[in-house]
Design a protein around this nucleic acid. Sequence first.
DNA 1: AATATAGAATTTTTT
DNA 2: ATTCTATATT
Length: 667
Amino acid sequence: MTKEIITTNETKPARKKYVLKKRETTRSNYKVNYETDLNQAQLEAVISKEGPILVIAGAGSGKTKTLTYRVARLIEDGIKPENILLLTFTKKAASEMLSRATIVLDDRCEKVAGGTFHSFANIILRRYSKLLKLKNNFTILDKTDCEDIINHITGQIYPKKEKRFPKKSTILEIYSKSVNKETPTKTIIEDEFPQFTHCEEKIIEIHKAYVGYKRENSVLDYDDLLLYVKLLLENNEGLRKTLSNQYQYIMVDEYQDTNTLQADVIKLLASEHNNIMAVGDDAQSIYSFRGANFRNILDFPKLFENTKIIKLEQNYRSTQNILKLTNTIISKAKEKYAKTLFSEIKSPVVPALICAKDTQMEADFICQRILELLDEDISLSDICVLARNARMSYSLEIELSKRAIPYQKFGGPKFMETAHIKDIVAHLRVIINPDDIISLTRILLLLKGIGASTVNSVIPIIKGQLNPNIKLLPSKKADSIIPMLKTLDKLSHLTTSKKPSDIVEEIIAYYRPILKDKYDDFAKREKDLDHFQYLAGQYSNLEDFISDMALEPPDSSVEGMYKRNSDDEALTISTIHSAKGLEWDSVFIIGAVDGRFPSAYSFNSEEEMDEELRLMYVAATRAKNNLYITYPVDMYDYSMNMVLSKPSRFLNGIDDEILEMWDITEE
DNA sequence: AATATAGAATTTTTT
DNA sequence: ATTCTATATT
Ligand SMILES: Nc1ncnc2c1ncn2[C@@H]1O[C@H](COP(=O)(O)OP(=O)(O)OP(=O)(O)O)[C@@H](O)[C@H]1O
């Protein structure tokens, strides 16, 4: 099914132009040469100042570039940077774009407001928390924190476990979708999690308790940040006007990955002027698990009347050969919207599909090919390895280390969410706030001889005071609890006099025996603790440290992070999701085996299969010159009970001229 | 009855 | 690698 986008204000076909020469006196006062740096359609988007504008275009067509130049243009036109709001999807994208704008124009661009939706929401909420009856020092919860709360609540309401009850991460997924799609929990369960309809009521009841807990304790999860901003703007006419007038020009990148909640926030922020520019590509929508829907971008003209739609059709990133392949891939989507995309970059190199007999061979191939690319004068930082999920690159990482090829990894499990770091953070949180029963629970459960029921009886005694009447503690358990209380109580009096890193050091000293007892691989985890202490060293206030880590954690994942000096050249390894919007000279897509990519998870739903396809499209369109797709044939899949041996179905039946097949033979 | 532990099952993607 | 479950231990 192929549809056309409803166009309210079609871009005019290029007509023949008669050029009037510039005369000295009318020479443009602009510092940036917009006319030569941009093509016609891009220029039109950049100089359109007022009203809603939607730039919808394929990968590499310069959407982000257009946004960057528009920021510069607005500033050159005399708009104050503080009146421009630039919302992006990731922190990386935000800083990248502002630094690009700074290069294009000057450092006025750095004063532009914005960042990610969540960080922007955080700033607004801290400023106006009173209006929501929130403490302004509210805590932001990460995934693990939320799971701990769910655990706590479920334990309270339903001490007996139920059969086929969703696990905590699934429960949270349901709640998150419900908030982000602005749909009742009940509907989400019935539509997307029908296997849990039998315990629907319980899930809803736990949700109520969860919301109640968050309110009572002034803690917010990621979704609350957005939700509360929306409520704030909806219920405070005056504030809505103030903020809307402050942010005169609003720009949103990667609009295809916004959800209805975010769309509402944007609508409210733009309510006074409708000066809003959204930029995106429905074919690159890959965040539906967060409630994003690619139809949102197509509905933008409905949300904002008289939207001017601008399409960009020339790709400046990739060679024609790569584009031939990516156009072929995306044409396989079940539901899509017609778009033209062409390139003028010629190159004899054709993308390749490489079969490896196992993951080791896949890793060997990539390493060897990387070394050859380096010989061709391509730098390591111009090469990237992309994978469907973070685990996929394990063998490769080992091989890279063996060959001393430096790499940095993005995406996958977060440093801050590993169990041992969470343990340390829980101690710190209790020091700061002895009422934090979730962290207290976590700490108590680490102790010998203490389980769920002791925790329940002990919490009322030590909640809020780290120096309780010892006689109240159950006598048999007191011995293991008291040392912990003493340590934390002592430190709680030193939060102002001691540096955060010193406090962290003492906690680590206390925790180390527990770590050694709990994990076989404690040596590796111990290094993480040291790194955590190093991070603490960059703060002078413990509370700031903890709250910063929640919203803006160090952005590379567990490994690679402290192995590397930031100025060294390094290969990038990334999940496809984290690579969005970026580009490299040479790209390897690994693990492109059917059952992993697309994931077996998506086999029974056409919509999910389409999203996997878009993911492949996003991955392949990151490449400028060289694209290699590899698949090992030794992966075993538990759910399907078979060895996965076929290449991704998205690459099936593609002509050899568009995608070369390579076989590897060993010397 | 509460806790510890061994074995089985399950695992995407991110703010 | 982590989380859940069933069984052993105290
Ligand atoms: N008019 C132009 N002339 C020359 N190069 C351009 C032009 N427009 C964009 N480019 C280059 O094309 C590349 C892709 O641009 P950009 O990242 O802005 O595309 P995009 O549409 O945001 O891509 P994606 O959809 O993948 O995020 C960049 O290297 C950019 O510098």
